[in-house]
Design a protein around this nucleic acid. Structure first.
Length: 404
DNA sequence: CCTCCACAGGAACTGATGGCGT
DNA sequence: ACGCCATCAGTTCCTGTGGAGG
């Protein structure tokens, strides 16, 4: 057994951890009071409260950038409502789903349905028409007289997918109540983008946007307050130094005031401090944690890429600041070396922009006059990270070891 | 001023996959 | 057994674009 592991185990055993309550720093933790969101809490409660009288609440649309407490507020309000309702014993069902976690409209509906206790048989993960899935969900609501709240996070994502496939699922959802004889369905949409309305059918906007609530970004001071609150619960006293707090809040403010990230960063930094057997979390730990999170994210993303996408990354790594055409040539060579069929230019262009979107490479459009206009790409992460990620990758028996 | 290059990137299509209902 | 329906990676075809060189 290696030394550091021993040390960690010893430290934990001796109760030396400076983190006394880890759960408080988890992403799904709902605090008793959500800082700076009193009026939002009130508005959401107001919109959803009709359900207490067993009538249908307004559909709801929440806007705000990531980490502004949208999900927390919804969860909290629903928690409150559920507590009220418990005694009166009529059922409220809440199903939460994040559009980004589902690759397609189908999956999202199934995930919502599952939370209404529809099992594998009643709601198979594939094979049915979307309208059929929808019908089954409505039947369930109708038969059991459920009062259902669907919370759809990142609903802009869903709207995009639906639009691409010409599906009117959002319209169906907002109008579902007209098809229900008993029970009710309320839709709560959460979107990160204000511009999301443009994607929607006007009929959907009118019913989904019955109530709209906008969550403003937190500023550095507010994030600090939020962090302090959590620190009080999560850490032993005086465990987090002031400069560390400043840096943590600062990093989050760079991400448009994303409190969620700040909290996660704090947790990781705390773990690092623990591992170092430090009694305090310092700004050095924060910085280290920040780099770790970034690197891990990049690495897992790269590992999950399919073979050809990996090859494209390798091509960019080999040819920094080269044009699309040149990268394509290198990519084709790589394919030849590995004995694989190459994909078309168009597909590679597509992949390049997908990889760029994630920030692993960056491209800028350059005009070379009579030599045309193209895009030049460069790697934005250390090439070591890429090599580490691809070192052990196996694509049906093929290793990338030799070409990196 | 016009041309023309080397792509960017949208849109529509294809073919494989996979599991359903009948 | 068969058709249906949705998804997904990839292809085909396309129009658009900015400026160096004529």
């Amino acid at each position: 057994m290696s030394d550091p592991i021993d040390r960690i185990l010893d430290a934990v055993e001796a109760g030396e951890s400076i983190i006394k309550n880890r759960d408080v720093l988890r992403l799904d933790y709902v605090p008793d009071k959500i800082q700076y969101r009193d009026s939002e809490m009130e508005q959401v409660t107001q919109s959803l409260s009709p359900i207490l009288r067993q009538s249908r609440p307004s559909n709801l649309l929440l806007y705000g950038e990531p980490g502004t407490g949208k999900t927390l507020v919804i969860k909290k309000v629903i928690e409150n409502i559920k507590q009220r309702v418990e005694k009166s014993n009529f059922p409220i069902n809440v199903a939460y789903s994040n559009s980004k976690n589902e690759t397609a409209v189908y999956g999202l509906l199934v995930s919502l349905g599952r939370q209404l206790d529809l099992n594998e048989k009643e709601l198979p993960t594939t094979g049915l028409a979307i309208s059929e899935i929808f019908k089954r969900i409505l039947n369930k609501i109708n038969e059991q007289k459920l009062n259902v709240i669907f919370v759809i996070d990142e609903i802009d994502n869903l709207a995009e997918k639906a639009q691409k496939t010409g599906n009117d699922i959002l319209y169906q959802l907002t109008r579902a109540n007209e098809r229900l004889e008993q029970g009710s369905l309320t839709l709560v949409g959460i979107s990160n983008r204000l511009t999301f309305r443009d994607l929607l059918d006007p009929r959907v906007i009118s019913s989904l946007g019955e109530e709209e609530i906008i969550f403003t970004n937190y500023n550095v001071e507010q994030i600090k307050t939020i962090l302090r609150e959590r620190i009080k619960e999560a850490f032993v006293e005086n465990a987090v130094e002031e400069p560390a707090l400043d840096l943590c809040a600062g990093k989050a403010a760079q991400q448009h005031g994303d409190a969620r990230r700040a909290i996660d960063l704090l947790l990781k930094a705390g773990e690092i401090a623990d591992r170092r057997q430090s009694k305090k979390v310092t700004d050095i730990h924060i910085r280290e944690a920040f780099d770790k999170i970034e690197e891990k994210l990049v690495k897992t993303t790269l590992e999950k890429y399919p073979l050809h996408k990996k090859l494209v990354v390798i091509a960019v790594m080999r040819a920094s600041n080269f044009t699309t055409g040149e990268i394509y040539q290198i990519y084709k060579n790589l394919c030849k070396v590995l004995g694989r069929d190459e994909l078309t230019n168009r597909r590679i262009t597509q992949m390049l922009s997908e990889i760029e979107l994630f920030g692993i490479i960056s491209g800028r459009i350059v005009n070379q006059g009579s030599h045309g206009s193209t895009k030049k790409f460069e790697l934005k992460v250390p090439s070591e990270t890429v090599k580490m990620a691809f070192k052990d990758s196996k694509e049906d028996g093929l290793t990338l070891q030799d070409i990196i």
